[in-house]
Amino acid sequence: MGVRKAKHGWIYTIFFSLLSIAWVFPIILVLINSFKKKVYISRKPFTIPTDKMFVKWDNYVNGMEKIHFFDAFKNSLFITVFSVAVIILCTSMCAWYISRVKSAFSTWMYYLCLFSMIVPFQMVMFTLSKLANMLHLSSPVGIILVYLGFGAGLAVFMFCGFVRSIPLEIEEAAMIDGCTPIQTFFQIVFPILKPTCITVAILQAMWIWNDYLLPYLVLDMKRWKTIPMAIQYLKGGYGSVDMGAMMAMLVLAIIPIIVFYMACQKHIIEGVVAGAVKG
């Protein structure tokens, strides 16, 4: 299909080029406004900042002071990277276990994971945040455990789907040759699971990086904020919103995402397709 050239292809190309410009326009608009003096932002959002409207990096400096953006960035990065790593490691092991050991526990665990995928966060938000506080999980390290628990459903489900397609003979051969289950898993099974690991990692990273409500309820706000929390705090923490700082922080929040997207675009898109087919 893809190779056939369309009739009047250039009309479509022009149409989609215009549409693409319209698509990135909201982001460009925020970028433009981040260099504008704050009083002009809500009054004249569509003008290019010149002379008296132009404030150089003031909004950025101001915003970073207000919400400690780099701390928030560090927290977000730490929580996302380690949560995803822990999720991948623990759930792939668990999925292998419940696929290979036929027991009542395996069946129950599988269906509970499936079930947890349709439970909305509001259902558990109050009890989960209270429980996390009681168990002293209100730190960036503690929240990793919460993410492992709440993200396990989807991850276990996806790994199970893949493990079932791996022929049993490979593992049996390894075991007969004297591998312990741990060696078998890490030397034979885990390398085969790599494509699924990437899919799970991308889906979970997109969720955890952007998640607002869970860290807001679980983390101790006074000491740690993630990027979405910091941005929302900019609005909630002060009576009237400092639009200049807001625009600058929005730009800073988007930049890492765009850099990451450009770097692993192919994996992200493939991961989404693979995730959708199995989910």
């Binding site: 623990c90 994971c113 919460v146 628990g149």
Partner: peptide
Amino acid sequence: TLAAFTIGF
């Protein structure tokens, strides 16, 4: 995973 799933879900 079971422990975290029990606490988290």
